[in-house]
């Protein structure tokens, strides 16, 4: 059965969550396809000015 397993993962959505899932998996030994419908990744977080509660730049 193990022979049938495919060592790759499709991540749908290139927001903060999708990006970090993709990074963790890629760094753990899986091949990752990151799928995003827009022309760039980053999602809503890239639109935010600062983040709560540290006021760090979201970008």
């Amino acid at each position: 059965m193990n022979n049938k397993l495919t060592g790759s993962v499709v991540v749908i959505g290139g927001g903060i969550s999708g990006m970090l899932s993709a990074l963790d998996l890629a760094n753990s030994g899986y091949y990752v396809y990151l799928v995003e419908k827009g022309p760039s990744i980053g999602g809503v977080m890239a639109q935010l000015d600062k983040t709560f509660p540290t006021n760090d730049c979201a970008m």
């Binding site: 495919t6 060592g7 993962v9 991540v11 927001g15 969550s17 899932s21 993709a22």
Partner: peptide
């Protein structure tokens, strides 16, 4: 061809 899917559409 993938073994798992992560769905994070926001």
């Amino acid at each position: 061809d993938a073994g798992s899917i992560i769905f994070s559409p926001g």
